[in-house]
C-alpha cells in the first residue's frame, strides 16, 4: 500500500485543532484521527499506521483497516492530501 501525502503546511495542535494556513480553513479531529494524521505527516505507510493503531487502541484489525481508509477518504474530501 502507498503512503498518503498530507499538505505539508497543515498545523495540528495537541488539542486536535487543525489550521491550514494556505486556505485559512480550520478543522477539529478526535484522538484517533490525530494519531493517524501525525503518522501520515511523518510519511508512514498506510499498513504501518494501521498496525500502530491496533497496537495502541482497543480495536479489531478489520475495523482499523476500514476506518483508516475511510479517514483518508475524509482527508481527500477536504483537500487535505496532496494529490500526486
Amino acid at each position: 500500500m502507498s503512503s498518503t501525502q498530507i499538505s505539508t503546511s497543515l498545523a495540528v495542535s495537541e488539542n486536535g485543532f487543525l489550521f491550514l494556513p494556505t486556505t485559512g480553513e480550520t478543522f477539529t479531529v478526535n484522538e484517533t484521527g490525530r494519531f493517524i494524521l501525525r503518522r501520515l505527516q511523518e510519511g508512514r505507510e498506510q499498513q504501518e499506521i494501521i498496525s500502530s493503531l491496533i497496537d495502541e487502541f482497543d480495536v479489531e484489525p478489520v475495523d482499523a483497516q476500514r476506518d483508516v481508509l475511510d479517514f483518508i477518504g475524509q482527508l481527500r474530501q477536504y483537500h487535505l492530501t496532496d494529490t500526486q
Partner: peptide, 21 residues
Amino acid sequence: MDKKKYERPVILKQQSGLMNK
C-alpha cells in the same frame, strides 16, 4: 498494558454556525 479506548477517526471542518459540539 491496557490499550486506549477506540473511537472511529473523525475530522470535521469548522463552518460558521456549526462549530458547537
